[in-house]
Structure formats: structure tokens, C-alpha cells
Design a protein around this nucleic acid. Structure first.
Lengths: 262, 262
DNA sequence: ATGGCAGATATTGTATGCAGTTGCGAAAAA
DNA sequence: TTTTTCGCAACTGCATACAATATCTGCCAT
């Protein structure tokens, strides 16, 4: 097993009460270095799932996964349950958990919810955005356009994620931001699946500019509507791309079929 | 410790490989009887926190809690982390987790987000509600009015919860419903704190009737707005009640101070 | 040949043990 | 009496051990 796993850190399990210092030389993103192992596992697994390294339908064998990540089953199980709550993993009682597969219906629902949340966030942000916040959004937009011009796909998507997140943060509402973050993981997974097929870069950039203009003008209603439309467009692109390269997906799609994309 | 714990089920730990059948005679809600222990722990703990049995600020000692619930620390830890993701519990590295305390700001944010989600849900529901679904909502409203007339507070709140949930479910959007459920836990906690002080029963009933009318008329925009306003009213009532019976709560409120209510 | 059953194996669910860290209290110094 | 420091007890975090359950394989009966 352990098929699509790219980085089998520490393949052999440490045996007993032995030095665990410097065990994972270079793991996660940044400051979560000294956070509990289960947090690192969550980050790592989420990245692997979202980026398709663990394809939808893949069974997650606790023992193998734990060994692959260089930790024991205890923190791994905690991570798996957290990701299940986030909707990235499906828990099956007394059976291996597995990466949830995305069918067209779920993707539509996901983006519909996301659009609603971002609309709400934009409306609030239009009222609460500080001049500094607005400047930051404009900087991010500049970054996006620069990366787009340079054709750097990964950086483009990262910046895109960042500006959406920044808008939501500008709403100054923690619970809203958390709900948004929870959905975003799954949406990113869907977007990643469709990523190679459809880009829509130019339209997306233009829409962003309009949204920023509405925010700057404090036009709450318009900012909300524009952002919701923007997300909806993305959803259409993603579902169309998936429909083109995958089974009709009226059925739950069962397994890794969705991954069979050029 | 274990202060406010009311029901120390199975006080003594089972020793080893012994019959665990019929261990917890009547635990949770319903069909989660045969689900993993951590699921039961989540349900149990959530109920205890929401209903104030575990006051905000209370330290959650894993060993004691596990013993109190009749299980070991492993599934308990999983439950605690799940509830932390839900925002009911605050995790402190290498220290006991504790029940998160609610300050006025957070309560406002919470209900603001909730209002936004329910508005979205109502708009979708107005478009998708089936005749059967509408009938069900009307039945729930009848139940609420009956319980109100009978003065049965608990039943009233349960039915109230049910109709809000039902509206959200009528939107036919799973991710949205999940996000809503996650926020609802904390909101219920806040409402419970203020419960004894302010009721607002009549206004609430009238608002419900208007919402149902808008849904029946398929007036998506109006249904959304009414529901959002309804939630906002509840938020005002809750925060006003808390402000009256608790410290100004400009500061994080530190501990169980909020519980000091008549 | 095919269907179903029995043993064997693999994998989850739960409990327990052990090491590291934190906080608290007691004792000593000012 | 007040303050500082050291030591101890408690608790968390992680790993592992053990029990329960599901899956798989091959054999036997039809």
C-alpha cells in the first residue's frame, strides 16, 4: 500500500524510548514546528489530499500512514478525525477511512456555500475594511497579476487563495472565517482536480478588479454580489472541466476514477 | 476536580478485557449507541458544555474526565480535539484544555455569522422547498406554539432548534448545513447562558410565522432577510442579557465569571 | 465449476505505560 | 514579612500493547 505517498519520512518505526530529537528535519509550513504531532499530521495530510497526492477513494491504513509520516497511530488518528470533520476524509466504522470522492453535485453545493459565505464576508468587509486593509488587498491583486503575467501557475493559485482569504479576514468575524476555511479545503481539492483543464485566468483577474473597486467604494451589496458571482463562475468552470474528463458522476463515483485526468 | 459533573457514569475504570456490553445503559441521543466511544464522548461533552454543566473556563483534566465518562484517555482526547475544532474547547499546548469562555464580541460575531448562513439557507430553501418540506416546517411551528402555550421551556427550545435546523436542511446543501451546525453549538451555549434572563417568546413566534409565510410564497429575498433579522434579534437579546448579569466583558472574561447568573 | 463456510490475516478501536513539561508549593534568602 | 529558587507532583503527549472486528484465502460440498 502507501501508493501515492511521495515522502516516506523515517520508514522504520523507532523502537522504544529512544532519541526522538531531530526526527522530522523539515516538515510543515512554518511555525507549527513545535506544535503537537497531530497538527503537523493534519497539515501534511490535508496538503496531500488537496493536491491529489492521495487520490479520492484511497484507503487510509492507519499503520502504514503513521509509519510513512514517522509517527505513531495515536496522533495520526486524531488528525484523521479532524480531517473527517472537515469533510476531506470519510470515516467508516471499523473499516479504513478513505479520501472522500467528489461528485458533481457535491462540488456544486460546496461552491454554492462558499459563494454565500464570501458574499457575506464581502458585505461585512465593505463596511469594516481599513485603508491599510484595502492597500493590502490591492497589493495581493498586484501580486496575482504579476504571477499571471509570469505564467507561474502555482504562485498564481497561492496568491489567489491569499486574496480570497484576506477578504474574508477583512470581515472581522472569526467564526465566519473558520467556516470559510473549513469549506475552502474541499473546494481547493475540487479546483485542483480541474486545474489542468481550465484556467479562466483573464476573466478571474478582471472580476477581482471589480470586487476591489466595490470594496473601495464601500458598496457592500455590490461587493457581495460580485464575489458570489465570481465564486459561482469558478464552480462552473470546475464542474465543466470535471464533467469533460470524468464519468457523468451521477453516481457517487466510487473511487479514484476522478483522478484519471490528462 | 470534576466539579460540575452531574453524572459520573461508571466511576471505576474497568480493569482488563472484561465484558463491556451494557456498560453505558442509556447514553446519548439515539442511534449512536454502537458508534465509537469518541463519538459518544463528543455528544456527551458538547451537551455538558452547551448546557453549562461545564462552565466556561473549566479545566478539562483528561484523566478525570475519562474516568467520569467511563472510558480511557485515548478516545477522550479525540473527542476533545473535535470539540476544539468546533470552538467549544480551547486547547493549550502541554496544559489542560478548557471550556472556552464567551465574551460579548465573540457572541456578536457568532450570531452575525449564523444570521448570514441562515439567510443564505432561507434564500435557497425558498427556491427548493417541497410541499412536504413546507408542511413539515408548519408542523414544527405548531409544535413550538403548543410548547410555548404549555410553558414548557426545554421543549420550546428543542422545537425552536429543530425548525431552524429544518430550514437549513431545506436548502439542500450539505456543506452549508455542516457549517451551520458547527456554529450552532456555540450559539446554543451563549443562548443557554442568557436563557434564564430573557425569553422574547412572543416576538420570536411572530417572526417565525412571517418567515414561513415568505418561504411559502417562494419569496427568497424576503425569507432570507427575515431570518437574518430574527437571528440578529436573538443575538441582541442574548448579549443584552449577558451584559446585564456579567462583567462588561471588554476583557476576555477570564473564567467562569459569566456563569454567575441567577 | 460455483457457492458458501472456516480458518487465518489484516486493521481498527481501546487501554495503558513512559517520558517530558508545567505549575505549584515549600523552603530559604533578603 | 516579602521575594526568590528549588523540588515535587500532576498532567499532557506520544507510543505501544491488547482485544474486537472485518476482510481475505482456500477448501469443501453441491
Amino acid at each position: 500500500m502507501l501508493g501515492p505517498m511521495s515522502d516516506p519520512v523515517i520508514p522504520s518505526q523507532r523502537k522504544r524510548g529512544r532519541p526522538r530529537k531531530a526526527a522530522l528535519p523539515n516538515v510543515g509550513t512554518a511555525a507549527l514546528r513545535r506544535a503537537g504531532l497531530h497538527v503537523r499530521a493534519v497539515e501534511r495530510l490535508r496538503a496531500m489530499i488537496v493536491q491529489g497526492e492521495l487520490a479520492p477513494g484511497t484507503a487510509l491504513i492507519e499503520g502504514d500512514l503513521a509509519q510513512g509520516l514517522g509517527l505513531s497511530r495515536t496522533p495520526l488518528r486524531e488528525a484523521v478525525k479532524l480531517l473527517a470533520q472537515e469533510g476531506l476524509i470519510e470515516l467508516r466504522a471499523n473499516r479504513s477511512a478513505c479520501v472522500r470522492s467528489l461528485d458533481a453535485r457535491e462540488i456544486l453545493e460546496l461552491f454554492e456555500a462558499l459563494a454565500g459565505l464570501e458574499r457575506l464576508a464581502a458585505e461585512l468587509a465593505a463596511r469594516r475594511l481599513t485603508p491599510a486593509g484595502l492597500r493590502r488587498l490591492e497589493e495581493l491583486q498586484t501580486t496575482i497579476e504579476r504571477e499571471h503575467a509570469a505564467g507561474r501557475r502555482e504562485a498564481y493559485y497561492a496568491a489567489n487563495r491569499a486574496i480570497h482569504r484576506a477578504i474574508v479576514e477583512s470581515a472581522e468575524n472569526r467564526p465566519l472565517a473558520q467556516a470559510h476555511a473549513a469549506l475552502l479545503g474541499r473546494a481547493e481539492q475540487a479546483r485542483f482536480l480541474a486545474l489542468r483543464l481550465a484556467h479562466r485566468w483573464e476573466e478571474s483577474l478582471a472580476e477581482h478588479r471589480e470586487i476591489l473597486a466595490a470594496l473601495a467604494a464601500r458598496d457592500s451589496e455590490r461587493a457581495g454580489r460580485l464575489l458570489a458571482d465570481h465564486v459561482a463562475h469558478t464552480a462552473h468552470t470546475v464542474t465543466r472541466a470535471l464533467a469533460a474528463g470524468a464519468p457523468p458522476s451521477g453516481t457517487p463515483t466510487g473511487d479514484a476514477a476522478l483522478m484519471s485526468m490528462p
